[in-house]
């Protein structure tokens, strides 16, 4: 349903009777968000000292990776018109679980896997409650957000567990072929997410469920199962992000990931995925994350005060969504036919 290089199937094809002139919606859909990123990077390279250095770009990539991995998982959920507010808390729980597993003597790969599985399990709880009990995802995940945070505190007794000999620290701090390890992991996550969404039957079902759940059901798609799985995917991604976070700070922090869910949602929406479901692209999410990361790092390099940074970030998110809404306008008008004829004559 999403466009790709070979141009197989498109969500929104080139408009038929576009007539003459520039079709803003068509081009925004394709290159808009990327253009924003390019402009932003160019701007930063000129204004901010040291922005364009290799070291700094690696730094940005590394700092982006955790939010980007969260956002990749969340993209699945949002494509089905769902939402997951608990991913920030899952970061904490899975980090704690991974560190405790490692300290219990497990080798690094096992500790990492256990952390990811802990996230997936939390995601399964979200998904099962949402899909099989037909409860509102917003409320369920609001609940698990608090619950899992509480679990992280309980497991650690409210104190960070610091271990300077943490065996899986390299996944946060190491390098692979000269590239920071979290960045490599992030790229792998996005390749996998792209493949699943674009090239598998399951991916098509995700778009279908988000596009029209009832039509999907009547077309023979197991809507409940698809719904459940997307939360498991979001949970697993959050688990992975939690492991990386713990590795980077070489400790288990019960406060890890606080507020991360909001940055991740912002990245997904910035990337052009509709909160109404059925429309969006994984590559947009990646660019959305990068934009947010570049913005933060650039503003820090420019010595913009933290409070002002928040103002600017918030404005950028609103602007992006506004442009997205503008682009949807012609379609929406067609969808709702026409407004009421009973508009009061003032």
């Amino acid at each position: 349903m999403t466009d790709n290089s070979s141009g197989a199937t498109t969500t929104r094809g080139k408009p038929t009777a576009a007539g003459a002139g520039f079709d803003f919606a068509y081009w925004w859909d394709r290159v808009g968000i990327l253009a924003v990123l390019v402009v932003l990077v160019a701007l930063m390279a000129v204004i901010a000292p040291n922005f364009a250095s290799v070291d700094n770009l690696f730094n940005i990539a590394r700092s982006i990776s955790i939010n980007a991995i969260l956002a990749a998982g969340l993209t699945f959920v949002i494509l089905t018109a769902g939402i997951d507010l608990s991913v920030g808390s899952i970061v904490a729980v899975s980090g704690v679980v991974a560190v405790m597993t490692a300290l219990a003597g497990a080798p690094a790969p096992v500790a990492i896997l256990v952390g990811i599985l802990a996230g997936a399990a939390a995601g399964f709880v979200n998904g099962a409650l949402t899909a099989y009990l037909s409860l509102a995802a917003f409320i369920i995940t609001l609940g698990t957000m608090t619950l899992l945070r509480g679990l992280a505190y309980t497991l650690t007794d409210g104190q960070p567990i610091v271990s300077n000999t943490l065996n899986f620290r390299d996944i946060g701090n190491g390098y692979f072929a000269g590239i920071p390890a979290p960045v490599v992991v992030m790229v792998l996550v996005y390749l996998a997410a792209w493949f699943v969404l674009e090239r598998t039957r399951f991916g098509r079902h995700v778009y279908a469920v988000g596009g029209n759940a009832e039509a999907a059901r009547l077309a023979g798609i197991n809507v409940k199962r698809v719904t459940c799985i997307v939360y498991v995917i979001a949970g697993a991604c959050a688990g992975l992000a939690g492991v990386i976070f713990a590795a980077r700070v070489v400790s288990a922090q019960p406060t890890a990931g606080t507020g991360y869910e909001l940055d991740a949602i912002a990245a997904v929406v910035l990337g052009g995925t509709s909160l109404m479901g059925g429309r969006g692209r994984i590559y947009g999410t990646l660019i959305g994350s990068v934009i947010l990361g570049v913005l933060s790092t650039g503003l820090i390099l420019m010595n913009v005060p933290f409070f002002t940074q928040l103002l600017i970030k918030g404005a950028v998110i609103i602007l992006a969504v506004a442009i997205d809404g503008l682009k949807q306008r012609p379609i929406r008008r067609r969808a709702n036919a026409v407004p009421t004829g009973a508009v009061p004559a003032e």
Binding site: M1, T9, Y207, A208, G278
Partner: peptide, 29 residues
């Protein structure tokens, strides 16, 4: 519109949606 179509999705996706199993060995389309 309410029960059959995915309005924002392409015609080919709308037609193929119920037949994907036959065209996706091991889940790959």
């Amino acid at each position: 519109k309410d029960q059959a179509l995915f309005l924002d999705h392409s015609v080919v996706d709308n037609i193929a949606v119920s037949s994907l199993s036959a065209f996706s060995p091991r889940g790959v389309l």
